[in-house]
């Protein structure tokens, strides 16, 4: 499985280390040919407005949108969640997302940096162990469409959701050294989806 990490801006390096720890050999992708060559993608944490804009400037916006729509498995953390959402609240005027995940997210929903926090949360992957989750100017999911499953919540706001091929979290597992979410993405989301295609 060739897994890419979108490397326009954000904490690309941390996602790459997390994926390596899960036994995959990830590559940083920025160009159309690089994106064409991957089977699955991670959208990193960062500034969603910057990443969306750069994807347009460098001519990969439509390609990504199209590949996601055609079923490429994608995991997005924080900004990545916003980029996967069909609808964004508190967006910058004209802000685009790649979409594909039938959710409505609210940007910076937990507040500004002074409100950023970490906490232990339950993640519905069959394990009872809590996950240390770091929320940085984080979004939350305000509305969930049919076929979207909520995997974790904070104060009754969904903060981890998945559909058939897409996984998104408001928090940043890539900066905690806990690889459970990445492993879940590879083993429970990406691998089954890719095997089905074969």
């Amino acid at each position: 499985m060739k897994v890419g990490v979108l490397a326009l801006q954000g904490d690309v390096r941390e996602h790459i280390s997390s994926l390596i720890a899960c036994g995959v050999d990830p590559i940083a992708v920025r160009r159309p040919a690089e994106i064409e060559a991957i089977d699955a993608l991670v959208l990193p944490g960062g500034e969603s407005t910057t990443i969306a804009q750069l994807s347009e400037v460098f001519g990969i916006y439509d390609q990504l949108k199209d590949r996601i729509a055609r079923g490429m498995p994608v995991y997005g953390s924080c900004a990545g969640m916003i980029l996967l959402a069909n609808e964004i609240l508190d967006a910058k005027q004209g802000q685009k997302s790649f979409g594909g995940l039938d959710i409505t997210v609210r940007r910076n929903a937990f507040g500004r940096q002074v409100d950023s926090f970490e906490t232990d949360i339950a993640f519905e992957d069959g394990s009872a162990d809590l996950i240390r989750a770091v929320f940085i100017r984080a979004p939350w999911v305000e509305k969930v469409g049919t076929g979207v499953q909520v995997l974790a919540s904070v104060d009754s706001h969904p903060v981890a959701v998945r559909s058939q091929t897409l996984l998104a979290t408001s928090f940043h597992p890539e900066i905690t050294g806990d690889y459970r979410i990445h492993r879940y993405f590879i083993e429970e989301v990406a691998r089954p989806a890719l095997e089905k295609v074969k």
Binding site: I136, H172, I175
Partner: peptide
């Protein structure tokens, strides 16, 4: 489920999200 603000991880993590940016 205590929510802790202002930890080193939350502060340093914020800077990680700015990487590759202007």
């Amino acid at each position: 489920m205590a929510e802790v603000t202002g930890t080193a991880r939350v502060k340093r993590g914020m800077a990680e999200m700015l990487k590759g940016g202007v």
